[in-house]
């Protein structure tokens, strides 16, 4: 399961584990919906990584803070700092590459 986070708990959550993947999405975004099951499958294969999501419509401030201008946007945080980001619908293999050296 990919947990929904908000402004209140976000800063704490991205430091909870060494690596955290944040999925910036919106309910009206088709590619975001396509990405979700792929992400859930990957999440089950990487128990050491936290996977969370942010609804950009609800979390305007966070979206602006992280400069989200296109969704789906996945950001990989390492020790609370942005390490990598990918924009757009990706295949399972491409996402594994993002996490590859973790």
């Amino acid at each position: 399961m990919i947990k929904e986070v908000d402004k209140q708990n976000f800063k704490k959550i991205i430091k909870e584990k060494e690596c955290v993947v944040v999925d910036f999405y919106a309910n009206w975004c088709g590619p975001c919906k396509m990405l979700r099951p792929i992400l859930e499958e990957i999440a089950s294969q990487y128990p050491e990584i936290s996977f969370v999501s942010i609804d950009v419509d609800k979390e305007d401030e966070l979206s602006r803070e992280y400069g989200i201008y296109s969704i789906p946007c996945l950001i990989l945080f390492k020790n609370g700092l942005e390490e990598k980001r990918v924009v757009g619908l990706k295949s399972k293999d491409e996402l594994k590459e993002l996490l590859g050296d973790k």
Partner: peptide, 8 residues
């Protein structure tokens, strides 16, 4: 990638 193609 994922089903659906351009229409999504």
């Amino acid at each position: 990638a994922s089903y659906g193609g351009a229409i999504i």
